[in-house]
Design a protein around this nucleic acid. Structure first.
Length: 471
RNA sequence: GGCGACGUAGCCAAGUGGUAAGGCAGGGGUCUGCAAAACCCCGAUCGCCGGUUCGAAUCCGGCCGUCGCCUCCA
């Protein structure tokens, strides 16, 4: 068996074999930082976080690099509008994005290169292409010569003619071929610029990723990922540049995920149909976003709606609920045995699903089945090692998907802690009311607490209460 | 116009040749003073039409619909 990954380059699922045994070199294209990131960006980070976590779960040592584009036309324009320094603006949004990723439980990358930190390498890269005849200089700009690259178009599956016919590429008489793309852009007045052999300027978009990738991970990497909107021209051009320079395959597996949609269209900054991560986190949990994303396949689009995220929130609550403590004391017997078997089955089903090109939807089904088995066992009075093992497995496998199965933390919790003795007191009083069969008053307390997001459950062992975000 | 993906119960969604996972919502039941939580039971023949096959949601062709890329984009 083993892991299979769908490779955009070959349009097939392929068995995953890394370049170097036990190690994976992985690069994911990060955002251009000129505004608040939205949950489509979060989705990209979350999907590759899951890929990375699963590879680590399988025992691979993963070297994970993702970048920030911190110099480009949009950043410059936005900075000019705001009267700010473009590099500082980019820095601000990059920092904010990193903080959001942490809140979303995305593991930090090993490196976060940026355009501004790679300029010398980029210049060297471009010079290498010029020396080999793959690039040419015009008025301080440098362009890649697509006609010199025989397999240009192999990733996106379009020929050079197709790539340009019917497109809206502006004819630029200075370019040899309309498909030629900029490696280096001569600086206009007031723009950030670096000295280069071709005059002051800044890198084009595609060159940065190629350079960072090769610089930090080597000439051939295992996995190169991004949204499917990057296939053309971005990744196509990355391949062209990189392979023309090194003569070696650039990436062995190209992974592309589908887009997050809002209102029937791709969520995007240019369309303005977006939910920022900031906004999302004010109302919903990180786990719910993961559940929404992973309930479908990563290569398909995800439609974001308020209803969908609330359904996901309830699904997460179900998984969390399975982590509640046992209530009985049966440590052995048929019931305990059944739970042991269910645990083993869940692990197996989870791995089988994930091995099949990260079929998270199917993997989640295995988690829900395990949750049910745990709940059944709890009702039957099972506890002890098998119960603990089942819960540990649920947490572990959920963790591979980056789900924490924990309630909210931080400021809210501080306030909640302070309220605890008072809630205990109310619950105690209500118990007394129930003993005296004063149901009206007892129910009033329960209802009023419910309005404050505190739910009460009367069990045979007594009343338990919890803040609604917790298990 | 070119390239590509998708269309499965009320909603989300796996499954891609042998008679349909899972989640949310809904209905019924067990439990409960009533609830809640949990558990049990109930639901689809897979966009439409035609073809291949002993057999298709699953392969082929056509049609309809949705989305993505072809321009900055996760």
């Amino acid at each position: 068996m083993g892991l299979k990954i769908y490779n955009t380059l070959t349009r097939k699922k392929e068995e995953f074999v890394p370049l170097e045994e036990g190690k994976v070199r992985m690069y994911v294209c990060g955002p251009t930082v000129y505004a608040d990131a939205h949950i489509g960006h979060a989705m990209s980070a979350i999907i590759f976080d899951m890929v990375r976590r699963y590879l680590q779960f399988l025992g691979y040592q993963v070297h994970y690099v993702t970048n920030f584009t911190d110099v480009d036309d949009k950043i410059i324009r936005r900075a000019q509008e705001l009267g700010q320094d473009p590099i500082e603006l980019a820095q601000y949004y990059a920092d904010k994005y990193l903080q959001h990723l942490a809140e979303l439980n995305v593991l930090p990358a090993d490196e976060y290169p940026r355009v501004t930190s790679e300029i010398p390498h980029i210049i060297e890269f471009i010079q290498g292409l010029i020396d080999k005849g793959y690039a040419y200089v015009v008025d301080g700009d440098v362009y890649f010569r697509v006609t010199k690259d025989p397999d240009y178009g192999k990733l996106s599956g379009r020929s050079l003619e197709e790539a340009i016919s019917g497109t809206r590429i502006e004819e630029d008489p200075r370019k040899e071929h309309p498909g030629d793309f900029a490696l280096w852009k001569a600086a206009k007045p007031g723009e950030p610029a670096w000295d280069s052999p071709w005059g002051p300027g800044r890198p084009g978009w595609h060159i940065e990723c190629s350079t960072m990738c090769i610089h930090h991970l080597g000439e051939t990497i295992d996995i190169h990922g991004g949204g499917n909107d990057l296939i053309f021209p971005h990744h196509e051009n990355e391949i062209a540049q990189s392979e023309s320079l090194t003569g070696k395959p650039f990436a062995r597996y190209w992974m592309h995920h589908g887009m997050m949609q809002l209102g029937g269209e791709k969520m995007s900054k240019s369309l303005g149909n977006l939910v920022t991560i900031d906004e999302y986190l004010k109302h919903h949990s990180p786990d719910a976003l993961r559940l929404l994303i992973f309930s479908g396949h990563y290569r398909k689009p995800v439609v974001y709606t308020e209803e969908a995220i609330q359904a996901a929130e309830r699904s997460v609550a179900r998984l969390r609920g399975a982590l509640r403590p046992p209530t009985g004391d049966k440590t052995v017997g048929d019931e305990a045995d059944a739970l042991r078997v269910a645990t083993e089955n869940a692990r197996e089903a989870f791995i089988q699903a994930m091995d099949d090109d990260f079929n998270t939807s199917s993997a989640l089904a295995a988690l829900f089945e395990l949750a049910r088995a745990i709940n059944t066992a709890r009702t039957q009075g099972v506890s002890g090692p098998f119960f603990e093992a089942a819960q540990r497995t649920l947490k572990e496998l959920a963790g591979v998907l980056g789900l924490t199965l924990e309630g909210r933390k931080g400021e809210e919790e501080a306030g909640q802690l302070a309220a605890k003795p008072f809630i205990d007191l109310l619950v105690e009083v209500r118990q007394e009311l129930r003993k005296r069969k004063l149901w009206d008053l007892a129910d009033t307390i329960r209802n009023r607490l419910k309005e404050l997001s505190i739910s009460l459950e009367d069990t045979p062992e007594g009343t338990v209460w919890r803040f609604e975000d917790e298990a």
